[in-house]
């Protein structure tokens, strides 16, 4: 049993991390589907930690939301007329512009790690939702074998840790954010957890 098997084994805590990234990805990629709304409403969490409280608030808040109010808020926050209140891209946060070097650096790493781009994707790959999805995939092995922790850490440091905490703070504080405020709180708390956990493994 101690000898390695050929099946990738993802530890329980890593499965949970991947689920958290995947959930953030779904929440931030587009206005929620009915299925996602139901799922969020069904979340039960223990309030003993910031992350637990944030999940609890999300479920409570979304039980009072309608699909159209969620769609409207998402649109004001992330789409807008020319752009939303927030511009959730790595390149924008680091340089003030879209499509700059941070995006090129990300594409370099994507290619190296075997991460492709969906044919129907219209957003640049450095959208927060795409990056969360990539982290989830690196953890579970969606792009091949699960990435070793050192590789996950490198990807996190280079493409997420350097700006996503600020983005999630901004989301919490955004004028238009009420249903999405807990999403910012989840992201904020989870980024803290990830940063601390990577530091432990160093």
């Amino acid at each position: 049993m101690e000898l390695g098997t050929s099946e990738p084994v993802v530890a329980e805590e890593d499965r949970l991390r991947a689920d958290c990234y995947a959930l953030l990805a779904r929440l931030l990629a587009a206005p929620p589907t009915g299925e996602l709304i139901e799922l969020v409403r069904s979340i039960r969490s223990a309030p003993g930690t910031p992350l637990g409280r944030a999940f609890g608030n999300l479920a409570t808040t979304w039980r009072q939301a309608t699909p159209s109010s969620l769609k409207d808020e998402y649109s004001v926050l992330f789409i807008g007329v020319t752009h939303g209140e927030l511009i959730p891209y790595l390149s924008y946060y680091l340089t003030g512009f879209l499509h700059e070097k941070p995006l090129a650096d990300l594409r370099g790493d994507m290619q190296r790690l075997g991460i492709g781009r969906r044919a129907d994707a219209s957003d640049p790959e450095d959208h927060i939702a795409a990056l969360c999805e990539m982290m989830a995939g690196l953890i579970t092995g969606a792009f091949g074998m699960p990435a070793p922790l050192a590789e996950q850490r490198r990807f996190f440091d280079r493409h997420i840790g350097c700006w996503a905490p600020r983005f999630f703070e901004n989301l919490q504080a955004a004028k238009a954010a009420s249903f999405y405020m807990p999403v910012g709180a989840i992201g904020d708390a989870f980024m803290n957890v990830e940063t601390e956990a990577f530091a432990m493994a160093a």
Partner: peptide
């Protein structure tokens, strides 16, 4: 961290 408890449902 509460990650486990929080996301079981999700």
């Amino acid at each position: 961290t509460g990650l486990g408890a929080a996301i079981v449902g999700a």
